[in-house]
Design a protein around this nucleic acid. Structure first.
Lengths: 347, 347
DNA sequence: AAACTCCATGCAAAGGTTTGCATGAAAACT
DNA sequence: AGTTTTCATGCAAACCTTTGCATGGAGTTT
């Protein structure tokens, strides 16, 4: 067996034809005789010919690859989004290159460079929590690489965006806590310059204000990261306050889980002494005890839509269509880690 | 600003040199004069020249890309492995292409074809639970694409392998259950043709036999998939037996979580009425209540080592070095979902 | 001064594919 | 029969880079 892959030339020489003829036949160009076309296709099949994407990419100045940059992949949140992206891109002609920024601005910068070097045809990105400046994405756009931002917004960047209405999610959660009779509601917020963190905080603040619950600054703590361990200290701070809160609205389920953990260890009953609500609705949150009340986000759909928008944008790369801005609505899921709504669901 | 990326030619013509000279200068070829070299490097920097990987790939018949095939990505298990892989490959010259087979043999086949077409330089793979035949991997090897198998073995395939001693993990868990006084130990096993499932089952069986605990066939149930919902029915079957088990060793933490859920719903106390042990040690398993006893696996290291072995194999692609077979030892982590070891840890 | 060495640079091919244009032959028209 | 049309195929360039070999000039040797 000959070394190396089968090329157009190989097929051409075997059939005593020109490579161009073979190429046209395989692409169903009309100007090729039926017989030759059949013979070519048959031989290509037999030899398991597979066009060389690098030659194609070189010629057409595109890689048929799209890049995905996410801060991490170990949370269910981003891995579910990626699954949604995969399920849309997979069946298309494009390949996906997934990259992890590890919540670091520097690494994100390196990744953008790497993907740009690779001549990706488009990029899906959720910026790191350390990213404040979006010029690296603008540089991509200037190179005609479309950028779609998902979940975490990049304020000021003009691009297609697929987001979640975090404000609404937080508002729902906090208003529910108020209705259920909690009066001392704390918030475990996320890293500060994330759009999601800001919007959830605002939802929290507005829900308090609208319902005339006085705001206490010491009831707001911000975590450094999104994993369990990051929630321990801030929770302790809250619960060790003289006038400790009777409810915690946490930035995500991980933090909510460690809040529950800390609260239990301090001898508090959930939800009788303290209600706890998370965000994300990770699949296992149902299995905590008490089962965690949380805010569900349509992660899979979010991934799919982002991918679809990017594909469309790549196709109509020239048309100066307006940027799209899609916002998904999250939904509060009440379980057992928070008191029942005392008002009832009469209306 | 001119359309398209900067090429060697652009630099060459601006400096009235030949592209070959520019190429050599940038690659630090000794035969280039110091002055020219400096001038070229300066201009290249200014214009932000980035070599076209497709041209390079075409020339050298390699893509500088390695493919990763995993069954899914939403579990912490595989996403942590991928993080390990990324952390090794990222700083190297290679790119990673992550693909999800969704536990389907057909999709896995398609992915292998896709990656082969892309001329990836190597592949890291954990086969789907539906895969029984490994010829598609052999075809890759025949095309000189090295394959490294991780976590889930492909029996009969000659390749580098990085595995976990699932037998030992299961044996440790079950023997511990026996020592803690459980006598009716059930097993919620995984999909049947996975090596991991088989080895854990064998560990379970051997631990019973070694400790003279009679085997009851109706104490063994196999789940169809690895997510929570897949555990509900099989658990019910176990707990509705006339002589219900007093311990369950589950194939993973998800299944263990739903087993706990079902048991609680049926009014059983954990661990007093029934002990439950999982596998994987997902980070949130610590936060279940009771905290889940489970078997920890060095997932991150597993990912890193697999990647390192593949890189090495790619480098020495010619040398007919023997295939490596690395087996990591898992560790039992005892928490609150299982009774305390009645014997104590005296010796 | 002729012959030689050495150094810096250029030329051209190769890698696989697509595509506009040219070619050639057969078929169809007058 | 001569001219035009149609059809099938081939040629060659382009995409960008690397690399063996050729070139030319300057400096060194005899």
């Amino acid at each position: 067996m000959k070394k190396g892959r089968v090329t157009l030339k190989d097929i051409a020489s075997k059939l005593k034809l020109a490579p161009s003829t073979v190429s046209r036949a395989l692409n169903n160009h009309p100007a090729i005789g039926e017989d030759t076309k059949k013979a070519i296709k048959k031989l290509a099949e037999e030899l398991d010919y597979q066009p060389n994407p690098m030659a194609l990419g070189l010629l057409q100045k595109k890689s048929n690859t799209i890049g995905v940059i996410v801060p991490e992949i170990t949370s269910h949140f981003f891995s579910a989004i990626i699954t949604g992206i995969q399920d849309v891109i997979g069946p298309s002609e494009y390949n996906i290159m997934i990259c992890l920024s590890n919540e670091s601005y520097e690494e994100e910068l390196t990744l953008v460079k790497k993907l740009s070097k690779m001549r990706v045809d488009g990029i899906l990105v959720s910026p790191s929590s350390a990213t404040k400046d979006f010029d690296h994405f603008r540089r991509l756009q200037n190179n005609d690489v479309p950028v779609v931002v998902f979940d975490r917004d990049c304020p000021g960047l003009e691009a297609d965006k697929v987001l979640v209405d975090d404000y609404s999610g937080a508002y729902q959660a906090v208003e529910y806590l108020i209705r259920s009779g909690c009066t001392k509601i704390a918030h475990l917020g996320g890293p500060l310059n994330l759009s999601t963190t800001k919007h959830r905080l605002q939802g929290y603040l507005d829900a308090l204000e609208k319902n005339k619950v006085p705001l206490r600054k010491d009831y707001i703590q911000h975590v450094k990261g999104f994993s369990h361990k990051d929630g321990i200290k801030p929770t302790k701070k809250l619960l060790e306050l003289e006038d400790a809160p009777d409810a915690i609205f946490a930035i995500n389920d991980n933090i909510a889980a460690s809040a529950m953990h800390v609260a239990k260890k301090m001898g508090l009953a959930i939800p009788d002494d303290i209600s706890i609500v998370g965000f994300d609705d990770e699949p296992h949150s149902l299995y905590f005890s008490p089962a965690l009340s949380t805010v569900w986000q349509p992660v899979y759909s979010l991934g799919m839509l982002s991918a679809r928008i990017l594909l469309q944008r790549i196709k109509n790369t020239n048309s100066n269509e307006e940027f799209r801005m899609e916002v998904f609505k999250p939904e509060l899921v009440v379980r057992a880690s928070s008191r029942e709504d005392s008002v009832g669901i009469s209306d």
